[in-house]
């Protein structure tokens, strides 16, 4: 039996976030929160600002206004390194794996931040560095096992089919043992079976490791099934926020997706 899911207090909250590229306003005054242990979905039509939102959470973009509160501490802006060391990991909409490296090395890279040996120890590959590599290798093997990609561990990722690459990218994010996992369209371009697999992995990650997940997804069936709460963005504004059922019946959301008669 899976342990009882526990949704705790607010872990991350975004307050009055605005983002502009020159004169183009990508996000306007957006605020929502993410609770510890929940699966939070961000949905919205193309260009609504969903990916920008994730980029702000882990510091790739700097918001022009607003603040980010992560685990009680307030930040005007994040930077990617700090976000990573605080336990925020993510995957990308267009697969951003290290194409020239093997699956194993890709996932090992996800643990780089946890490695402590200095350059000299690495150069000699003895003692602490060797032990460290082995300890991390074992952790990585657990993740490989968890995501069922054992058979391709030594394959360069460039040679793998799309669906498997998506899985490897999830593995790399998990390797950092994140507390908050940001998934940017983890199921884009997948067939039904691959989607089902990916859904199961996401639920398992949430269940077994208690990882909080924020995901962007276009497949409404998936979103409604697996997420606890949903944020809806449209043209850089928040038009809905709440449990899936509530969002589904929200008139503004329906209008944004289906259009309105003028």
């Amino acid at each position: 039996m899976a342990p009882q899911r526990h949704i705790g207090d607010v872990m991350l909250s975004l307050e009055h976030i605005s983002l502009a590229f020159g004169g183009v306003k990508a996000l306007t005054d957006i605020g929502f929160d993410v609770r510890d242990g929940e699966i939070r979905a961000i949905i919205g039509p193309n260009g609504a600002g969903k990916s920008s939102m994730l980029n702000i959470i882990n510091g790739v973009y700097q918001p022009t206004e607003g603040r980010i509160v992560f685990e009680g501490r307030e930040y005007r802006r994040m930077d990617p390194h700090r976000a990573a060391s605080m336990g925020i990991a993510r995957t990308f909409q267009n697969i951003a794996l290290f194409k020239g490296m093997s699956v194993l090395d890709n996932i090992m890279t996800g643990r780089n931040l946890k490695m402590r040996s200095g350059l000299l120890a690495q150069a000699l590959y003895v003692g602490p560095n060797r032990r460290e590599e082995l300890v991390h290798r074992e952790k990585v093997e657990h993740i490989i096992d968890f995501l069922q990609i054992e058979s391709v561990r030594k394959t360069p990722v460039g040679r793998l089919p799309y669906g498997v690459q998506k899985r490897v990218e999830l593995a790399r994010a998990l390797a950092a043992e994140p507390r908050l996992l940001l998934l940017d369209e983890p199921m884009a371009g997948m067939n039904l079976e691959e989607k089902q697999d990916m859904c199961r992995f996401i639920l398992d990650v949430n269940d077994e490791f208690g990882t909080t997940i924020v995901l962007i997804e276009h497949d409404m069936g998936v979103v409604m099934d697996i997420s606890d709460r949903v944020v809806v963005l449209d043209y850089g504004r928040k038009i809905g926020d709440g449990p899936p059922d509530e969002v589904r019946s929200n008139q503004a959301v329906v209008d944004a997706y289906l259009g309105v008669a003028h």
Partner: peptide, 8 residues
């Protein structure tokens, strides 16, 4: 970009 996000 992915490297940076990992914390490199």
């Amino acid at each position: 970009v992915a490297a940076e996000v990992i914390g490199i």
